[in-house]
Design a protein around this nucleic acid. Structure first.
Lengths: 130, 130
DNA sequence: TATAGTACTATACTAAAGTATAGTGCATGG
DNA sequence: CCATGCACTATACTTTAGTATAGTACTATA
């Protein structure tokens, strides 16, 4: 039995490593939302601002830089009179699709769950969430 | 074309909402790692500490409370001489499995990608990550 | 008797994430 | 000529996340 738990621990560690690698790159409130916005195609700075409700210019600017450094986003400058800049996903960041889909599905499930729980104990009014 | 972008914007928003719901619940450096640890079965406080490398007692204690409030973790007290406490996943948090798997797979992929990029420009030595 | 384990909490702190507000330079539209 | 849009940057700030260290009350073990 002692042996089994140690084996479990090893398994757990090897499962955790790549999960944490992902979390390191995708951390924070905004990176995934920005990527979701860009899954709908190349966009400009202000377009992303409009999609990702509540983000400030400063944050968007910073997060785009981070994502570019990590090879998830490409920045293209189109010269013209008002210089235009577009952002788009790299093939690599397109592989995040399954991550995003699973988060999206879970989000839907979780909200449904909260509603159900809410109905059960209607009076208590707890919603929790965070 | 104007119409199409507005339609896209609506689509994007409705995709983003549940993704952000998930992120709100799973935010931070530790929640998913803790859940991963518990996917291997009921565990005690110190066992989780050992699995989730680097977490402090304070953080673990706080995050477990958060997760319990959100209905993702159950705390059981087994009375005995040294009082023992165990934590386990709820059926609801077991539905996070696909989220975790996708993050894990992407983490593996991303690390592979970094290594490849590193080989290409061997001299430059950039690894970036964060 | 001393040490270590169990499941934490308390206090104090630093660092990182995020917000608020304003400003820049250039161009077009009314 | 004034306002607005574009793609940002700068400054200053607050909030949250996370770290470090210590301590508690109890028990079992050496």
């Amino acid at each position: 039995m002692k042996k089994a738990t140690e084996e479990e621990h090893r398994q757990c560690t090897s499962m955790l490593k790549p999960v944490r690698d992902s979390l390191d790159v995708l951390n924070g409130k905004w990176k995934l939302p920005i990527i979701v916005s860009l899954t709908f195609g190349e966009k400009r700075f202000t377009d992303i601002t409009k999609d990702v409700h509540g983000i400030t210019d400063r944050m968007l600017s910073k997060e785009l830089r981070d994502l570019e450094l990590n090879g998830l986003v490409v920045r293209k400058i189109l010269d013209g009179y008002p210089v235009r800049v577009t952002y788009s996903l790299t093939p690599h960041s397109k592989s995040l699709r399954t991550v995003i889909d699973s988060l999206r599905n879970w989000g839907i499930l979780h909200r449904k769950k909260l509603n159900e729980d809410c109905k059960e104990k209607k009076s208590s009014g707890k919603l929790v969430s965070k």
